[in-house]
Amino acid sequence: MKVYTGGGDKGKTSLFSGERVEKHSSRIAAYGDLDELNSVIGVVLSMLPQGVNTLEQQLQVIQARLFQAGAWLATTPGSSAAEFLDPFPETLVKDMEKDIDQLSDELPPLKVFILPGGHTAASMSHVGRTVCRRCERKISQLLEEQNSDAGQDEMKTIQVYINRLSDYLFTVARYINFKTDTREREWQKS
């Protein structure tokens, strides 16, 4: 199957629901950022140190979920194309919260602000966390631009999921630094 299609050479692209939109449209921008986020998680995965198998499994599941979320963002809410998509239920957010809690249980309590950095995988996880925030802003804009409430449930859940993912990636960064005995640098007031 060919990777290049040339269909978008004139500045437009097709949504999964079939509509033609400008490549800079909010919807394309949002799922583009989600794709970037998924790629960053791929980098975190490829840099993971030994002995953090739980993270490997969790991150792989998250990558699949982000793919699912991307399909929702590429679909106009309320369109009939939505019936082809896997649901994105709120339980996924709850599952992520459980993962955060479990990882946090092993970590020393956080009493001060810490600076992004440490082990390369941890640093990359911080990058992922910031891309999450950008995705969240884009999804929020999309929700605002949309005129009706039809079919917005999944989008709202995805927004919450991305918010939790940012917390999760923050925790992952700390977890990796902890497991690799890498010092977390605290923020000092200058």
Binding site: T5, G7, K12, S14, G18, E19, R20
Partner: peptide, 22 residues
């Protein structure tokens, strides 16, 4: 793909509010 690409551009120009599945 060459046909799909050409037809897609024609649709963008002549039938702009249409949806495309390809």
């Amino acid at each position: 793909w060459e046909m799909i690409q050409e037809v897609t551009h024609i649709i963008d120009e002549r039938f702009p509010a249409s949806v495309i599945y390809s």
